[in-house]
């Protein structure tokens, strides 16, 4: 475990809590893309199937359970989740690897409906932009984590993860710029 990865995972977890806090505070999910939330749900379900096949560490298992559980409560896709689990559960180990790759690719683009929604309306409230920043920060730090692990360990992260992770972080680039130049100075998130 290195500091980049730990902070990245905590940002990822934090992003979900920010989203829940926002829905509670404003009692509304306006400005949050349902498509993105549904895609993220699919991302978690297809990737963390490995919960049943391999054990890495308690940290790893607990975090995967957190992401699955919180995401389920978040968008109330319990029924869809159960159906997906039922469909995929009987599959063998190799299928899990294929689904893992699918999940990685899907995650890279899952934020796009949300970003498109913000491009269309040209603005987002501050809590929503904190949420997206936490997600983007998690992805960006994972890249640093991979570089760190490349030099500190004799194994390397999968090339699928590298390519998709860099594409995904790239999608956040414009958002990061607006976030740093406007939101952190207390202004609204508004596209120029």
């Amino acid at each position: 475990m290195n500091v980049f990865r730990l902070v990245a995972d905590l940002l990822h977890l934090g992003s979900i809590f920010i989203l829940i806090a926002r829905i509670h505070q404003t009692r509304s999910c306006a400005g949050i893309s349902l498509k993105t939330q549904a895609l993220y749900f699919l991302v978690f379900v297809t990737r963390y199937l490995d919960l049943f096949t391999s054990f890495v560490s308690i940290y790893n298992t607990l975090m995967k359970l957190f992401f699955l559980a919180l995401d389920t409560f978040r968008v109330e896709y319990v029924l869809v989740g159960a159906a997906l689990f039922a469909l995929v559960f009987p599959h063998k180990y190799k299928v899990v690897e294929i689904l893992w790759s699918f999940s990685i690719y899907l995650e890279a683009v899952a934020i796009m409906p949300q970003l498109f929604m913000m491009t269309r309306t040209g603005e987002a409230d501050n809590i929503t932009s904190h949420y997206i920043f936490a997600l983007g920060g998690y992805r960006a730090l994972y890249i640093v984590n991979w570089i760190y692990r490349y030099y500190s360990e004799d194994k390397y992260s999968d090339y699928i993860a590298w390519v998709a992770g860099i594409v995904q972080t790239g999608l956040y680039a414009d958002f990061f710029y607006v976030y740093f130049t406007r939101v952190l100075k207390g202004k609204e998130f508004k596209l120029p």
């Binding site: 995972d9 391999s54 984590n145 194994k155 390397y156 992260s157």
Partner: peptide
């Protein structure tokens, strides 16, 4: 150098 198993990260 080998690829790390995919289940290690989140």
């Amino acid at each position: 150098r080998q690829a790390r198993q995919t289940h290690d990260e989140l």
